[in-house]
Each structure stands twice: as structure tokens, then as C-alpha cells.
Amino acid sequence: MWRWLHPYAKPEVVYRLLGRWLPWVAAAAALTLGAGLVWGLVFAPADYQQGDSYRIIFVHVPTAMLSMSLYVALAISALVGRVWQLKMADWALAAIAPVGATLTFISLATGAIWGKPMWGTWWEWDARLTSQLILLFLYIGVLALYHAFSDNRNGAKAAGILAMVGVINIPIIRYSVEWWNTLHQGATLTVFERPPMANSMLFPLLISILGFGLLAAALIFHRMRNEILRQELRRPWVKNEFGKELNEAERT
């Protein structure tokens, strides 16, 4: 596996590869996201209990799902970076963290906004909202640590260690918050626990999940290319590659 992977660890190869994928992924993201959201907003029927307010789900659920898996991806790339000393993993970490933090913020904000008409309050100390808030704190910690180092390589290493510590803690935090919530719960909040959805709502939701996933991938690719350039700006390959790209951009 190592021999197969090794050529892909070269910055110029990764840069070129990501550049080739980026337009396709971005286009696919725009297409699926547009389709999913328009279907969800315009064509899906209103919920018989929550009326049209449930349409927030088409943003809330995809971002909440991604926020979690992106943190795991962050920790995995940190682990790869530590074990195999791959620079690529450091760049991936720097690219994933802001995207994950933004998606976590979105899921939190939409959850709170959804809570207002449903629970009558903007913020409820609900188990999921609370653990999502803590996840946002963890993301912010990783980002803050990364940017606190003047040397990006050290920053990525330190942030990676923190991300790994965080990912071990996430199940514990989730469990503890859930337990705490059952202990202190006033009323049962069941907005997020729904009966199996009708297909007319499920399909647009699945499409938006796919769309947000592709969007996250496109954003991460773009940021990773930036990260590679920033580290390698004075290397000869950048002159060829980047210069060519700029020329093409000027011609069109």
C-alpha cells in the first residue's frame, strides 16, 4: 500500500489532482444541492404536525451529520500525519477544520431557529444541541491552536494532537450530555425524533445530504490547494503549475 500511496504524497501531484477534481466536484455539489433544496423547499409536502417549519431539516440534518464525520476525518488525517509524517495530512487538517467548524455552526444555528417555533425558545439545553455546541468548541480549539503557531507545520502537529484527544472524548461527551439531559429534563423534546419519514420528504433530504457532502468536499479541496501553495510557493514546480493556471485563467 505504501508504494502505491507514496507518489500521491508529493505536493505537486496532490495539487494537480485536486485541481482536476475541483471543478467536477463543485459542479456536482451545486447541482445536487440546488436540486435537493429546491425539491425540499418547493415540492415536498408540508409536515402534518410542524407545517412548513420542518423545511429547515434540509439544511439542519445534512450539516449536523457532516459536522460529526468531518471531525472524525480531521482526527484521522491527524493520525496519518503523526504516524507516517505525511505533509499532505497536515494540509488536509488545515483544510477540513474551518469547513467543519462552519457546518457545525450552521447546524447549531438552524437547530436553534427551528427550536423557536417548535419549543417556543431559541435555546433549549437539549442533549443534541448541547453536544453540538461542545463540538463547535472543540473545532474552535483546533482552529485557534493551529493559528496560534507562527509555523504552520508545528501548528498542524499541535492541532492534530488536540483533534485526536478530542475525538477520544467525543463519545464520552455525547454520553455524558445525554445522561445529564435525562437527569434534568423538563419536557420531552421530540422535534428531532420523528417517525419514519415519507418518501416525498426523505428523497430531497437524501439529495441535500449528498449535496452538502459534495460541497464540503469541494471547499476542502479548494482550501487544501491553497494550503499547498502557501507552503510551497518558492518551489520550482509551483512556477510551472501555478503559472500555467494563471495564464489559462487570463485567456478565458
Partner: peptide
């Protein structure tokens, strides 16, 4: 259906 403010606020923030 009366929830316009919340729905559009959520989508707008996102």
C-alpha cells in the same frame, strides 16, 4: 405557512 421568518432566517444564515 406562517413560519416564513424562521425558515428564511435559517436558510439565510446557512
Amino acid at each position: 405557512g406562517g413560519y416564513g421568518f424562521y425558515v428564511w432566517l435559517a436558510f439565510g444564515i446557512s
